[in-house]
Simulated assay, not measured.
Amino acid sequence: MAVVTFSLSEFLSLFPAINTAYVNGDITETQIQENFDTVAEWLGNENGSMFPYNPPKVLTRKRLLYLATCHLTMLALNPAGQQGRIASASQGSVSTSFDLLRANSLTAQWWLQTPCGSQFWIMSQSYRKGGRVYISKHFHPY
């Protein structure tokens, strides 16, 4: 298996909303690269990773890394203080409330804040046990 190399142009072509933010200067290449590096540490991006990556046929790790990078980037693009989706909004005297999609764990609720995170959560479910993502192949429960 190989290591996933981040391609900004490919990433931006896969996620048009982030591409728009990038073109408008709302987020920089450095910030997106940092998000990728962060999720690569979380999920593992080495030959021994539990997420398979053997291009061109098996791209699971790349998809998960890109989706998680998209999730972190979309969260960074949210206005300050916004957590989750907009549940209600008013205009006179300005009022907004936010809500997380309901899930059976706090981890799931965090991932379900964005479409990319939701897709990551579903795609990674076969690698989770008991609502957690185990990064190591040599998991020891004690």
Score class of each variant (00 low, 15 high):
residue 116 C to F: 11
residue 5 T to Y: 11
residue 103 A to G: 13
residue 64 L to D: 04
residue 53 Y to V: 03
residue 102 R to M: 05
residue 125 Q to P: 03
residue 122 I to N: 03
residue 41 E to V: 13
residue 18 I to C: 06
residue 99 D to W: 09
residue 118 S to P: 04
residue 108 A to L: 03
residue 60 T to S: 03
residue 114 T to L: 03
residue 78 N to A: 11
residue 69 T to P: 03
residue 14 L to A: 14
residue 25 G to S: 04
residue 29 E to M: 07
residue 61 R to Y: 00
residue 113 Q to E: 10
residue 28 T to A: 05
residue 43 L to G: 01
residue 38 T to K: 15
residue 118 S to D: 12
residue 39 V to P: 11
residue 52 P to S: 12
residue 14 L to N: 10
residue 32 I to F: 09
residue 112 L to M: 10
residue 52 P to I: 03
residue 56 P to T: 01
residue 93 S to D: 14
residue 119 Q to E: 11
residue 62 K to S: 00
residue 17 A to I: 15
residue 107 T to N: 11
residue 70 C to N: 05
residue 77 L to F: 10
residue 76 A to F: 09
residue 130 G to S: 12
residue 77 L to P: 08
residue 83 Q to F: 14
residue 130 G to Y: 10
residue 122 I to K: 13
residue 54 N to M: 14
residue 106 L to D: 13
residue 8 L to P: 09
residue 111 W to L: 10
residue 61 R to V: 01
residue 112 L to V: 01
residue 33 Q to I: 11
residue 119 Q to H: 06
residue 128 R to I: 01
residue 86 I to H: 00
residue 124 S to F: 05
residue 81 G to K: 03
residue 23 V to Q: 15
residue 133 V to Y: 10
residue 12 L to Y: 15
residue 92 G to I: 13
residue 6 F to R: 13
residue 46 E to D: 07
residue 118 S to M: 11
residue 88 S to L: 10
residue 73 T to L: 03
residue 4 V to L: 05
residue 59 L to Q: 04
residue 89 A to N: 09
residue 64 L to F: 04
residue 104 N to E: 14
residue 119 Q to M: 08
residue 102 R to V: 10
residue 51 F to D: 00
residue 115 P to Y: 07
residue 23 V to R: 14
residue 31 Q to M: 06
residue 33 Q to P: 01
residue 128 R to F: 05
residue 69 T to K: 01
residue 72 L to N: 14
residue 47 N to D: 05
residue 35 N to I: 02
residue 119 Q to R: 10
residue 70 C to E: 06
residue 94 V to R: 07
residue 36 F to A: 10
residue 8 L to K: 07
residue 10 E to P: 06
residue 102 R to W: 09
residue 85 R to G: 05
residue 20 T to F: 05
residue 89 A to H: 08
residue 28 T to V: 05
residue 48 G to I: 01
